[in-house]
Amino acid sequence: MIAPTEDAGRAVADGAATGTGAFTPAPYRVVERRVETDGVVSVALVPDSGEPVAWRPGQFNMLTVFGVGEVAISMSGVPGEGRLWHTVRDVGAVSHALCGTGVGDVVGVRGAYGTAWGVEELDGVDVVVVAGGIGLAPLRGAISLLARRPSGRGRLCVALGARSPDQVIFAEDLEIWRELGAEVELTVDAAAPGWTGSVGLVTAVLPQLSFDAGRAVALVCGPEIMMRIVARALVDRGVAADAIRVSLERNMQCGVGLCGHCQLGPLLICRDGPVRAYGEIAHLLGERER
């Protein structure tokens, strides 16, 4: 390389250029808002210009509420809808602001980031999906696609855990998935009188699902403790540890492998995850404060 004699005075990069830098969110608008349960809101976003980002179920976006901050939120819709659905649980400053957005509000979007559930590879195998709480959000797209596989291309069993019946998100989807032939078992931690569904830990309904454990693939998402317990129960049932896919979670600031926050031992979860085979990462989940 020759010394830049001529362009010496010029800026290496232009100032104030709107571009597609890794950290720059694109403005999207909220076009629909749905209250799922107390403290959980879904928003549908479309870009101010251009097409929405292409994505696969399991991936996430970094969503910015301008002036508040940016957080990682999975896509909870179905690919190809033309709008991006995200389902957010109000737990802190940014998620609270996201839940509070209304139709017409601007939300910044960067993505799509991370690994996906890989539903494309799941033709002809039994799939058992286990989700807990808001963990159903990143799985909604995967379940919707799997439920529409041609018949005979593998069974679909869904086990859902929730705190209580009124905390179940996507309740109407559960009916649709059942109608499409999926076995869907819902179990809650506690219920008011009159609840005719199950009460108990989500692992308790696994024996009632009729998947062929030796050939099944499992997709698991929920709080980390729940994922560990479910994964062990599935292994006990005969599902191969490498056939169990879990979605990992750690503090995220950048989403693109540059800020160092999402480390879990050898992994940068935003870059190498969030979806990983349980067999590969079981030891990491077992290590305290890792």
């Binding site: 709480g133 808001i134 855990g161 308790a204 709080p223 980390e224």
Partner: peptide
């Protein structure tokens, strides 16, 4: 299972 449910997992991740 009872002990895990006592943790109220989905209420507070």
């Amino acid at each position: 299972a009872t002990r895990i449910r006592l943790l109220d997992l989905y209420g507070h991740d």
